[in-house]
């Protein structure tokens, strides 16, 4: 479903990604671990076509995403729900509107928005913060809005970049449960985290990165660094 073909990304002279080759099957739950600066976020940027690789290609269902039309890329992006490491909420929109916007962008009707947004906010335990702007929310709350936004459109793929970085153990557990549940329903999940406990309890595929390279790819991996 997703295929990285000899992807290298240089920032200036230093390589954030170097000769990355791997593929992800539909329905997989794959975790990417590695020290800070290993290139995990850069990898996700490649998949969302936020930046171009210096060389190599990235395929999403046989479409080379750095070589498709604007409209096709938008279609692909709507099928990938992303939880950004730095949240990237729209600062001038409330929690409700942030999620509604993602639904509008995906072409959902008003009825779907009215019913799904409160529901998904309830799911991440923010049912009472609907009308708060991002700056009125704590870091963990913002992160949960970002999670709600990523899952609301029932995307084919969820990319979660450090989605539990600002959460307490209870919230972390709940968010991982949500990811597992959507994965059980068939959604492909790509997760990065520094949380050893989470990785070890998942018992799913783990890719380990170091300085821009993949150094391990284990079927039922553990957090080994």
């Amino acid at each position: 479903m997703i295929y990285f073909d000899k992807v290298t990304k240089l920032y200036g002279n230093s390589a954030a990604l170097e000769d990355i080759n791997f593929s992800i099957e539909p329905g997989e739950f794959i975790s990417i671990v590695g020290h800070s600066g290993a290139g995990k976020t850069t990898l996700m940027k490649m998949l969302l076509a936020e930046e171009r690789p210096t060389s190599g290609d990235v395929y999403f269902q046989s479409a080379n995403i750095h070589d498709v039309s604007r409209a096709t890329l938008n279609q692909i992006r709507r099928r990938i729900g992303t939880i950004f490491q730095d949240f990237r909420l729209l600062p001038y929109k409330t929690a409700y509107e942030n999620i509604a916007f993602a639904m509008e962008a995906a072409g959902r009707t008003d009825e779907e928005i009215y019913s799904d947004v409160p529901h998904v906010l309830e799911l991440v335990d923010l049912g009472d913060k609907l009308n708060h702007f991002p700056h009125q929310l704590s870091g963990g709350e913002q992160q949960r809005v970002a999670i709600a936004r990523a899952i609301v459109n029932q995307p084919d793929v969820i990319m979660a970049d450090e989605p539990t970085g600002n959460l307490d153990p209870v919230n972390t557990f709940e968010v991982i449960q949500i990811l597992k549940k959507v994965n059980d329903l068939g959604t492909t999940v790509i997760l990065t985290t520094h949380n050893k406990g989470v990785i070890d309890s998942l018992k799913k595929r783990v890719i380990t990165m170091d300085r821009g390279r993949i150094i391990r790819d284990d079927k039922e991996g553990m957090y080994v660094l």
Binding site: R77, T82, R88
Partner: peptide, 16 residues
Amino acid sequence: RDEIAVMQLVGAGRNY
């Protein structure tokens, strides 16, 4: 400008 970038990343069309 950041808001515009994020809107694009969630797949919103240019005109929208």
